[in-house]
Simulated assay, not measured.
Amino acid sequence: MPKYQSREEMTGNNGEKDGQITFHYSMLSRNNYAAWAIKMRVFMQAQEVWDAVEPRTSNTVVEARKDKMALAAIYQGIPEDLLLSIAEKKIAKEAWEALKTMFMGADRVRTARIQTLKAEFESLNMKESEGVDEFAVKVSNIVSTMRTLGVTVEESYVVKNLLRAVPSKFLQIASTPEQFGDLDTMTVEEVIGRLKAHEERMKGHGDSDDRKLLLTHQEWS
């Protein structure tokens, strides 16, 4: 796996080096662009060079050194057969946009892709035989792809669709937060955790023992 190394030197009273951070960049493939782009963004933010790819404002001036570091990071994460495709791009933003267009399509294709993903997400249903972790991965993949395409996906939107999509065995869980009126403040991770806890209860007590599976307000809190 390609490696891009950054040394963060923190100087104390004794002036000695205190730590070193090494980033291992994922390699871009034909099937992992969404996850790759998320990781690359976080790595470059940690390197404080993300502004070269996505300036904070239209007037943001990018230092030449930061731009070269961002471009180098992008090169670290792509295979050799893609190098020629972006070799003529002189700045990190151009290289990034070229890869995005290549893998996500032009604006018209991107818009169609977003609509398809939204429809897929809103019609998604968890199967009776499906585990919470397995279903959570499906949800996460769709949401991550939409966000990579530039869509603002609110946490409450994901939570509501997640609870709508669960089968009848999770009905008590799905209806409980609605009774407490906290859907707009809950996180996806929180809901997944509670669904998993309920799943474990069902394994321990049996699906037919509904009385033991009822969650009280105190348990949710």
Rank of each mutant, 00 (worst) to 15 (best):
L28G: 02
E97V: 08
N32C: 13
G204D: 09
D210I: 11
I142R: 10
E120D: 13
L84F: 13
T152P: 02
G15P: 08
E54A: 12
T116V: 13
I74F: 06
F23E: 00
M1L: 10
I78L: 06
M27W: 05
T185C: 02
Y4C: 01
F43M: 09
M146P: 03
K196L: 09
I114L: 06
L84H: 15
D182K: 12
E189I: 09
M104W: 08
I74V: 15
E120Q: 15
I173N: 02
R41H: 05
N13M: 14
K68L: 14
E16Q: 10
V159E: 02
A87T: 13
N125E: 14
W36K: 03
G150L: 06
A165P: 04
T111C: 07
T57C: 04
A37I: 04
L162W: 07
N59S: 14
I114P: 04
R30S: 12
S140P: 01
G131D: 13
A73V: 09
E48A: 12
M102E: 04
A112P: 00
V132H: 10
L183G: 02
A72G: 11
G204Y: 09
V53D: 01
A34S: 13
Q179H: 05
L124H: 05
A73Q: 08
F135H: 12
S156P: 08
G181C: 06
R56N: 03
K100H: 11
E178V: 01
T57P: 03
A72H: 10
F121A: 04
E199R: 09
A92G: 04
F170T: 05
Q179Y: 03
Y25K: 06
P79L: 12
S85W: 08
A87W: 08
A197T: 13
A37Q: 07
A72L: 10
A197F: 12
L83Y: 14
A95I: 05
V143K: 07
V61P: 01
D51P: 00
G12M: 14
V143H: 05
L214G: 02
H217V: 11
I38E: 06
K196G: 02
E63M: 10
T176F: 06
M44Y: 01
I74W: 10
L28F: 01
Q218E: 04
M202I: 07
T216S: 05
W36L: 07
E154L: 11
F121D: 01
A136D: 12
T22C: 00
E54S: 12
D182M: 12
R41L: 03
L183R: 06
L117N: 05
Q45W: 02
E94Y: 07
I142W: 11
E94G: 03
V132L: 14
L117Y: 01
E134C: 13
D133K: 15
L149Q: 10
T60C: 09
D210C: 03
A119T: 11
I38T: 04
L28C: 05
E128C: 08
